[in-house]
Every structure is written in C-alpha cells, then in structure tokens.
C-alpha cells in the first residue's frame, strides 16, 4: 500500500463564510466552517470524511471543487494547483473531479430526460465524439444498473435509488479520476443503499476511481473506505486507516461517536459515552481544543491550548489524532470528570 501516488493534496484549507450584519451589512463575523484542514488522497483509494452535521464535511468537498471559493490554503490535484486556475481552466479541470450529492434531484434539470442529462454532461466537457455519445449513454446506464429502455424517461419517473444511479452515471460520463460523494447514500433505504454501495465499489474496481466519500454513517464508512478522517467543528480530530481507526480510536470524540451508534448485537451490552449538550457554534468555536466543552476528560490544558495532529505509535505514523491526552487513555490512567 505504500508509495502510492498522491492524487489530491489539500493543505491548510480554510473556508470562512462572512456573516453580514449591523447597519449597512458589514461583515461582523465569520462562520469558520473549515479551519485549517490538510490531507492527501492517494490514487485508487477511498478516503472518507465523517462527523456530525455542520462539522464542515460538505464545505470541504465544495471548496476542493471551488464551488465556493476557499478563504485560504492550497488544493493540488494531480500536480496542478486548482486555486491558481482561471474559470475556464477550472471548468475543464472539473472533468477529472466529479461530485455526487445526497439528493440528485436537486442538481438535475427535471425537464430533461436521462439521455439529455448524460449527453449534456459529455458535451460540456467535450468527451467522446458526437456520434458515439448515444451508445455511451446506453453503456453508462447499463453500468449503473439501469436499462436502455429508461433513457428517455424524466427524473421524476424514477425512485430515489434509481435517481442516485443517474447521478452516478452523470458523474461517470466524463471519465473522472476523483469522485466526491457527498452523503450519496444517506437518503436511501437500507436495501437500496446496499445496492448503491456495491455499485460504487464495482465502479471503483472497473474504472480505477478514487473516492472522497463524505458521510455521517460510520457503518457505511467502514464498509467503503480505506482511510478515514474524523472532523469536529471545522477541524480534523483524527485520521487513520480504517482498521486501526475503528478498532483503536485515539480521540475521545471518535470513541464517543463510535459508542453512540446503536448496535444490532442484542447480547452485548456496550459501554456508551453519552456526550453532553450540542456542538458549539462554528462562529465562535471554543478556545483550545474545540471538543473540550463536551469532552468528559477535558483538563485545563485542553481549555487553553489547541492540540496538533500527532501519532502515538511509531509503527503506524499515519494514524494521527489531535488530543493532548492520548497516551493517558492508552495507559488508562485518565478518568472522566464528574
């Protein structure tokens, strides 16, 4: 697995949304939606971003694609600095980076047939010669598990799962290298969700795709990912390969997130860490460690000093977390505060 090619390199990405207010709509503050996030996506892998709603997962995805212009940082894709491209170059670049949304219906023209939707995507990026496009549409539909007979139907004639397949087909139609899937299976019923997950895995094998998979469902994430990023309030709190992150979570937030998921094992009564309160506002995030207001282990240090991402295991330097007290958890010497 080592010495893989770096496909996407995100460095110190920040996305601050201005809040207008006061008499003449001055900017009075900022929503620090993504606050200094760095990570790398290797070619052919699936990297997932998990975290509670509002932690900045979608914003990260959108900033990479420059759907919102990021405040600062750098995004390098396959050796090209995306943030330095002009509009036209960026649009051409989008051929390589596609996105699938939770609700594909919101991002497609409801009056276009599936054929029109797919052909249009190909036209914009000018992939495939004109006369081949029709065959390509049929081929794509079959790839995503729809039939040629459905090519001339309108989006509303499809069920939610089928629409998601259309969204996937549209992303695939331009031969992308990286697909950002933003909660792509979250709105689907479990039986349909399983079908779409299998489809995504199949497509990855067939087309050597790389996924940046955004989700709040840790079961889904465990199934589809190679590596995982856990975000909290605009920051990465833990990053690591799937196995070690799920089996040996380092950050108390990751632990509580994992423990909060209800399990279908009716015999095992597991210990649950129930977090107090809500996620604080990203407008004035807590000083020090952003998690300290809900962390059962927080100390004075946590309240004053922001922890950096670091590893505690020399044999697994890629598994990192941002917590002052990880060693003490491992030694089991730290008890939750009353």
């Amino acid at each position: 697995m080592d010495k893989q090619k770096e496909l996407l390199n995100v460095k110190n990405l920040k996305q601050y949304f201005p809040i207008k207010g006061g008499f003449f709509g001055r900017t009075v503050n900022h929503v620090k939606a993504v606050d200094d996030v760095s990570f790398t996506v290797y070619e052919g892998e699936t990297l997932s971003i998990v975290g509670e709603s509002g932690c900045g997962k979608s914003t990260t995805g959108r900033a990479i694609l420059r759907l919102d212009e990021p405040t600062s940082g750098s995004v390098e894709f396959d050796g090209t600095d995306l943030l330095s491209l002009n509009k036209k170059e960026m649009n051409q670049m989008r051929k390589n980076l596609q996105i699938i949304f939770q609700d594909p219906y919101a991002s497609i023209n409801p009056r276009h047939t599936v054929r029109q939707i797919l052909t249009e995507a190909m036209e914009i990026q000018n992939v495939w010669p004109k006369e081949q496009r029709n065959d390509k549409v049929i081929e794509l539909l079959e790839t995503v598990g729809l039939g040629a007979h459905q090519a001339d139907r309108l989006p509303h004639e499809f069920s939610g799962g089928q629409r998601q397949r259309i969204g996937i087909a549209r992303a695939l139609s331009v031969n992308p290298k990286l697909i950002i899937a933003d909660e792509a299976v979250s709105a689907l019923d479990v039986s349909i969700q399983a079908q779409v997950l299998n489809l995504l895995k199949k497509l990855q094998r067939e087309f050597k795709l790389t996924y940046l998979f955004i989700s709040h469902d840790l079961g889904v994430v465990r199934h589809i990912s190679d590596r995982i990023i856990v975000m909290y309030l605009g920051k990465i709190v833990e990053i690591g390969d799937k196995k070690s992150l799920f089996e040996n979570p380092k950050h108390p937030y990751t632990k509580s997130l994992l423990s909060a998921i209800p399990s279908t094992d009716v015999d095992k009564k597991k210990e649950r860490i129930i977090l107090k309160g809500d996620v604080p506002s990203p407008i004035d995030p807590p000083k020090g460690c952003r998690f300290h207001t809900r962390c059962p282990f927080a100390t004075e240090l946590c309240r004053t000093e922001a922890p950096e991402l670091r590893s505690t295991d020399e044999n697994n330097l890629d598994h990192q977390a941002a917590c002052h007290h990880m060693e003490k958890f491992e030694a089991e010497s730290l008890q939750p505060m009353a």
């Binding site: 479990v190 399983a194 994430v221 465990r222 199934h223 196995k243 399990s263 279908t264 094992d265």
Partner: peptide
C-alpha cells in the same frame, strides 16, 4: 434487511448482500 446494513463494529469482505 439485516444483511444490507454495513455494521460499524465488524468488517464485511467483498460486497454487501442485497
């Protein structure tokens, strides 16, 4: 239904049963 849910506490080899 039970088989289509990817569990968070265990790895599934290959595809999910659907």
């Amino acid at each position: 239904l039970m088989k289509s849910i990817p569990p968070h506490d265990q790895d599934i080899e290959g595809d999910l049963e659907v």
